[in-house]
Nucleic acid binder design. Structure first.
Lengths: 106, 106
DNA sequence: ACTGTATTTCTAGAAAAATAGAAATATGGA
DNA sequence: TCCATATTTCTATTTTTCTAGAAATACAGT
């Protein structure tokens, strides 16, 4: 992952509303959640939510699949994995190491 | 870690200049780097660099220790660890799981 | 106290982001 | 085709961020 891509993804996550959206989708797992469901859960104006969702989709952290009249949103786990990898990459390459021990997660 | 703290930290990293600063510090390891060294490495105006560093310090991702006339900056690995943990926490709690496999790092 | 180096704070202008109402578009069904 | 529901795009306003020059502060040495 390039630095600018990583920065763009981190920026996308670096807003409370968007982080809440993303986490809600992570919790939802593979089946995802419709936009409308997100809207009621997060209690945001539809246009605002759409705006934030777009920001997450543009950087690849969220994907959307249409099911009839509703749009279902999914967290993209691959991109998240890459982003996490980027964040700890090359740790201490030029100095003594204070190792970044990654947390254990399902 | 609270959502707002996580968002603030991600936002701090979500700027190419600040991400470069942070990664440079991660590479530098435990001994850190003086502000001036960062400035020459990244070729930024001193005031701009100071501004960005402050943003990283405020959210706890970077710490500074004075050594005489120079300020040495260090990546805070503990905070990074917590942030990474937060990002994958509660994966799929409400749905079938597309597991987030964490990357292996030193 | 005076000088030099290191770094921050002040300031201000330009650019970008956040919010949300209103209008527009897309889909499926009657 | 017409309607209802779902979602986005348009538009505008307010707020925040970015950038960097100039001035100020901090420290160590003489």
């Amino acid at each position: 992952m390039k630095l600018d891509d990583a920065a763009a993804r981190l920026e996308a996550l670096g807003n409370p509303t968007r982080l809440k959206i993303y986490r809600t989708l992570v919790r939802a797992g593979a089946e995802g959640l419709p936009v409308g469901r997100l809207q009621s859960k997060l209690d945001a104006a539809a246009s605002t939510l759409s705006h934030h969702l777009k920001a997450l989709v543009v950087v690849g952290l969220v994907t959307q699949t249409r099911e009839g009249t509703t749009l279902v949103c999914h967290a993209n786990y691959d991109i998240m994995r890459e982003l996490l990898g980027y964040m700890v990459e090359e740790c201490c390459a030029e100095g003594s190491c204070a190792p970044v021990v990654l947390p254990k997660v399902a």
